[in-house]
Design a protein around this nucleic acid. Structure first.
Lengths: 329, 329
DNA sequence: TTGAAATGATAAAACCTTTTAGCAAAATTA
DNA sequence: TAATTTTGCTAAAAGGTTTTATCATTTCAA
């Protein structure tokens, strides 16, 4: 196991100075007036011996780690896992690596992790923020750390974000139930969270209800309760309100809903859910969904973050990406 | 945005040497005979000013980055996403961060990424290896880089691995179809891959078939072909062979299978799949599955890797974790 | 009382880069 | 020809840690 070559080994072997090698390797040969002949000699030698700069030393000196932090609620959730995959691809294209973590609804853990990432000189953060994080994110912003929020944003925090067109999407979905499927009693199942995307989805639903003159029927469930409790709540909600259609605000609520429908043989066949999921095309009664454009979301996140890291982009950017109504019958 | 404190700031402010502070911070006070009084003075001061050591400098000096690399086929696949979540938790508990990437069935990309991670002084690798990676992994091993393979291993590569009890699981699943469900014609759908886990699952199925005196009926499909092609192949397989039961070798094959069953209204209700998936309990005909013990797999991976990093564990470890047959009716 | 051992601390090197400031020689200008 | 500018390169500092080797003092044993 031979020791890795360092830049000073290169310099020594070539009989020139470390500085010169560094300049050449960092594409500053022209700017620093290194002769073409020497430049090529160094480049050739470096390629021949397969020298790779020590990224740690580089980072220590420059303060740039070429690493981004991705913080989500739960990396095993399909939506976040898919985002993670796209983000990673784009990031590597730009020479960045990704550190990730799941916050698991634990504000203290989240704060600790953000601090930890920051201590590691992470160059930028990609965060699906939860409510308790306002302050710690605010601190990052004060320190000029590049950040892009996604999936939702935080109202009183002026920063970049990339979200889906949640209100419009929910409006489309609700309209679809009311007008295309001629539903007469449409309920919405959502979670008890003040997160912006949830509020927007509720707004979209409400607007569609208002316009149609129908009553809104809404139930908010708790995210952290046991599955079977949720399932029973869903049944009660559908049965008690005599619903003939239901709009699920996220894919995991929808899954609980489908479990209830199957378990209690509920007779309801007009279903829309936010977020697409492989299950939806396979369930006995097909579920129409509002698919978020994960590719576009990821592209925007990386583009905004990288350009902010590179010192471009003066203004904070707010990007809103349309959803696609995937009709299933 | 005030500059972060360094260890030399601490030393200066306290009127002592950097060395002393470093010893105290690294729990070497006793060993290096620093007085209790001074030790406490330093610790108190460090806590008061909230000093955090620069991890980059630390890594540069020690050669340890406190980072692990996780390489999987596709981080958006539920199995890998779930593993990723568990691994991450465990890793953070030990003070390690995780860099991840999806290899996407692209050997060159995979090699490049492994090299990239290695250049970043990653302390250890967690890899679900594909066939072309034998050589590059072999090189890592020669350089004494700690590695744990999981999900599958590579035959001619002597190293740590953690896999599920694939053969026994497939045997159980096949027996269940044959004996409990009284199936008479059981087909196996798998992929055209020589990966060890696939071969073991095939072996388990074969053994059950042999013991029962039934013919084995096997189709291998290609992973990278379009969904609808796969779906049609599945239908042909089931119909042409007049199967009354089918064993899917992975969850994503199973999903294609379920799509075929739904699309062509195939009359088959004895189904087992390797890997659990939320869909399986919701499909019109319930799918019994062989659930891998993701928690146990992850625990073992981290435990083996960390102990190898810490120089314990002389011998390579081979861990085989039982699967659970999740019967659904 | 003396020599040896233990105590409590530290200076400086090392890890590997980037970058600032500067130097000698060659080329250009006046 | 003398003064100035350009060319081509480099020494050394800086970034923040860990670790080796060493050095005064103090304590102890003989």
């Amino acid at each position: 196991m031979k020791k890795r070559l360092s830049i000073s080994d290169i310099a020594k072997n070539l009989g020139i100075s470390v500085t010169t090698v560094s300049f050449i390797l960092n594409d500053k040969a022209k700017e620093k007036r290194i002769s073409d002949a020497l430049t090529h000699r160094v480049l050739d030698y470096v390629k021949k011996v397969g020298y790779k700069p020590n990224q740690l030393a580089k980072s220590l000196r420059t303060g740039k780690s070429k690493t981004l932090g991705l913080l989500v609620e739960d990396i095993s959730n399909t939506f976040f896992a898919n985002i993670a995959k796209q983000i990673e691809q784009r990031a590597y294209d730009h020479g960045y690596h990704i550190l990730y973590c799941s916050m698991n609804n634990d504000v203290n853990r989240a704060k600790e992790l953000i601090q930890l990432f920051h201590d590691r000189q992470i160059d930028g953060f990609i965060i699906a923020p939860t409510e308790g994080l306002s302050e710690v994110i605010h601190n990052l912003l004060k320190n000029n750390v590049p950040i892009v929020l996604f999936d939702r944003f935080i109202e009183d925090l002026d920063t970049n974000y990339v979200v889906s067109e949640n209100k419009q999407g929910a409006y489309m979905g609700s309209k679809y139930l009311l007008e295309d499927l001629k539903a007469t009693k449409v309920g919405m199942l959502t979670i008890n969270s003040g997160q912006t995307q949830m509020r927007s989805r509720l707004d979209g639903y409400m607007q569609a209800m208002d316009e149609s003159g129908r009553d809104a029927v809404i139930k908010k469930i708790q995210v952290d309760q046991p599955d079977d409790v949720t399932i029973d709540l869903v049944r009660d909600f559908i049965v008690d309100n005599k619903l003939d259609a239901v709009f699920f605000a996220t894919n995991y609520i929808a899954i609980a809903g489908l479990k209830a429908i199957k378990k209690y043989k509920l007779n309801i066949d007009k279903i829309v859910s936010f977020d697409d999921h492989a299950i939806f095309s396979l369930f006995q009664t097909p579920v129409t969904s509002l698919a978020q454009d994960i590719k576009s979301i990821s592209d925007h996140i990386i583009q905004i973050l990288i350009s902010e890291i590179n010192g471009k982009g003066k203004e904070y950017q707010h990007v809103v990406i349309p959803c696609e109504l995937k009709v299933r019958t």
